[in-house]
Nucleic acid binder design. Structure first.
Lengths: 154, 154
DNA sequence: TATTGTTATACTCTATAACTATA
DNA sequence: TATAGTTATAGAGTATAACAATA
């Protein structure tokens, strides 16, 4: 039996509705919009939260390391670090062993901000996932992780 | 017992790694990058595919309707329609009942292009989800749909 | 008054190339 | 040669406001 193409009727968008990528995109857009909304009053954005969390959780991390962890270009983290630094949320210290790098350490204000921003994100996420059970949320996270954290040797 | 905050150790990124939204974003970015890559040789992009599919699957649809289906602004579809129209993938016909709207119909070339683009996306998606079983793929799609297609009365 | 299609514009995030200083 | 941090720049996608034509 050959691969059967099965197209369910989902009203408009039969083909799109069958693509996981389409739902991935729609869900992520919805999530980002909500995250931006809850973070705005705190003057933060999703990316700045991710960057600050990296510094808080890994004291002494370098900007290049953050970029590798978050999957972004070195050139693009500069603006976000400049913003966080201007608000005294972290400091840079020259590395005595390797003078190319600066090691980043969160300030007390930085740790407080990270806690606040994370609380806001959790509130948003609880609302977004309100129709999913705890098991379903865990399963969703597991499956998503499988999707993107796979070895990409293609 | 109060809500216990449970933070698993995932190496760097304990807090981020526990957020569904983080994995949602990473998975979507990975998916979009792969989709862009497989569509590039065909001169298409994810959005143009979505728009063309709407026209192919719903002959006579208007641009405003496409925007509502795909969740985009009317102003932003103009460029994509102009691109598709320039390649003769659909035609516009004035609606005799409502002279504000143009109804869109795919040409034969449009239908062929939609098939080709969709085949490319399916290939990409099969590769992206190669470590998920059929059941897991269906479950992932179901959960994602629950996330974004919920009533948004917030 | 509301909707359609459109133009113009600004903003965010991303991608690329290049440069310097170090290793 | 390779890496870290940085600057400059272009691109894609999105959001907003405004407009004329029509309902």
């Amino acid at each position: 039996m050959e691969k059967a193409v099965l197209v369910e009727d989902r009203g408009m968008n039969a083909a799109l509705g069958n693509m996981v990528g389409y739902h991935l995109r729609r869900a992520s857009v919805q999530d980002m919009a909500g995250a931006v909304a809850v973070l705005r009053p705190a003057g933060a954005r999703p990316i700045t939260v991710s960057v600050l969390l990296c510094i808080v959780e890994t004291p002494g991390i370098t900007s290049a390391q953050i970029c590798r962890v978050l999957g972004m270009q070195r050139a693009n983290i500069v603006q976000f670090l400049a913003d966080l630094e201007a608000r005294n949320l972290f400091i840079r210290e020259a590395d005595p062993q390797d003078q190319r790098v600066h090691r980043l350490f969160a300030t007390k204000e930085g740790e407080e901000a990270a806690r606040d921003w994370l609380d806001r994100l959790r509130l948003h996420e609880d609302r977004m996932l309100r129709n999913l059970s705890a098991d379903e949320r865990a399963e969703l996270r597991r499956l998503l992780e499988l999707v993107w954290s796979e070895d990409d040797e293609d």
